[in-house]
Simulated scan of single mutants.
Amino acid sequence: MKHHHACVRVQNSKDNTRTIATVSVYHKYNHDRERQTWKGFLKPGSSTEPTLEVSYETGFGGTSKDWWYVTWQYQGQGGIAL
């Protein structure tokens, strides 16, 4: 298994009228899951600054698929969007 790092930037579309309050970026490989969370307000058209540094593993011996997903929560919203 090899450990990697990447920089991720999440942007709230300028066409969106809602402000995002929290963003989480997940990476899953085999049974390991990494998460990086950014808390702040992303108004429409803005992006996470600084970028999120995420870590992840890949390599020989893995028995599962490699996948990413992002969740976010709008300001004033109780649930989480996928």
Rank of each mutant, 00 (worst) to 15 (best):
H3D: 14
H5F: 11
K2W: 13
Q36C: 00
A6H: 09
S46M: 06
F41A: 04
E53Q: 10
K28L: 13
R33A: 02
K28W: 09
V8R: 08
D15L: 11
T48K: 01
C7A: 02
Y26C: 04
D66G: 03
L82D: 10
E49Q: 03
V8N: 07
N30F: 07
H4K: 12
I20V: 14
N16E: 09
K39P: 04
T63V: 13
Y26E: 05
W72E: 01
S55G: 11
D32G: 11
H27W: 04
K65I: 02
G45I: 05
Y26W: 12
R9Q: 13
M1P: 12
K65Q: 06
A6F: 08
L82R: 12
G62Y: 07
D15I: 04
G40C: 09
K2T: 13
G78T: 08
T48W: 01
E57F: 08
I20W: 03
R35Q: 15
G62F: 05
Y26R: 02
E57A: 14
G61Q: 05
C7W: 01
H5P: 05
E49W: 00
D66T: 05
G59C: 13
A81L: 12
G61W: 08
M1H: 13
Y29L: 09
T37M: 06
W68T: 04
E57G: 12
Y26G: 05
W72V: 03
V54L: 07
T19E: 12
T17E: 15
W72R: 01
V54Y: 02
G76I: 04
A21N: 13
P50D: 04
Q11Y: 10
Q77N: 12
F41V: 02
V8E: 06
T48R: 01
A6P: 03
T17Q: 14
G59S: 10
H5A: 10
D32R: 10
Q11K: 15
A21K: 15
R33V: 12
H5D: 09
F41M: 05
V8P: 07
E53H: 07
G45W: 04
G40S: 08
K28Q: 15
R33N: 00
V23G: 02
P44I: 09
W38K: 05
A6V: 10
V25C: 06
V25W: 02
L82M: 07
D15M: 07
S13N: 11
Y74V: 00
K28F: 08
K65S: 07
W67A: 08
I20T: 05
I80D: 03
K2G: 11
M1V: 11
T48V: 01
I80G: 00
G78E: 04
H3M: 14
A81V: 06
W72I: 01
Y26P: 03
N16G: 05
K14A: 10
I80M: 02
S55Y: 05
V54S: 03
P50A: 03
E49L: 03
H4P: 06
F60H: 14
L82C: 09
K14S: 10
Q75T: 11
S55D: 13
C7R: 01
K28S: 14
S13T: 09
R9I: 08
D32K: 09
